[in-house]
Simulated scan of single mutants.
Amino acid sequence: MLMFLIALAVIYLLPGPDMILLLQTGARHGRALALSTALGLGIARACHVLLAAVGLATLFKTAPWTFDGVRLLGAAYLLWLGVRMLKPGMLTTLQLSTGPTLEPALTWTSALRRGVLTNLLNPKALLFCSVLLPQFINSQAGAVGAQFLGLGVVLVAVGLMFDSLYAVTGAWLGQWLNSSPRAQRVQQWLFGSLLIGFALRLAFVQQA
Rank of each mutant, 00 (worst) to 15 (best):
V156N: 02
A27C: 04
V83A: 13
F128E: 12
L190K: 09
T169W: 07
G159Q: 07
G89S: 07
L155A: 10
S180G: 01
A105R: 09
K61C: 06
V54M: 12
G174N: 00
G26A: 05
L35S: 11
L102I: 13
L13N: 10
A46G: 13
I137S: 03
R114N: 08
M90V: 12
T98W: 01
V83D: 04
L86P: 11
L41M: 08
A32N: 09
F67S: 01
W108N: 12
L51Q: 09
V154A: 10
T37H: 04
Q135K: 12
W189Y: 15
L165E: 03
W80K: 13
T98H: 04
G16T: 04
T98S: 10
T62G: 04
R201K: 08
A44H: 01
F136N: 10
A76I: 06
H48D: 07
D18N: 13
L14N: 02
C47I: 14
L72G: 05
A171V: 03
T107H: 13
S36G: 13
L81M: 15
G115M: 05
V153Y: 01
L41A: 11
A208R: 12
L2R: 14
T66Y: 00
L91R: 08
A183V: 02
M19I: 13
L112I: 09
G74S: 10
G26F: 02
P17S: 11
A171S: 14
T92L: 11
R71L: 09
L21H: 02
Q188G: 07
Y77T: 10
P17A: 15
A183K: 02
G159P: 02
E103G: 15
G40C: 00
A105T: 14
T92H: 02
K124E: 11
Q135F: 03
V131D: 05
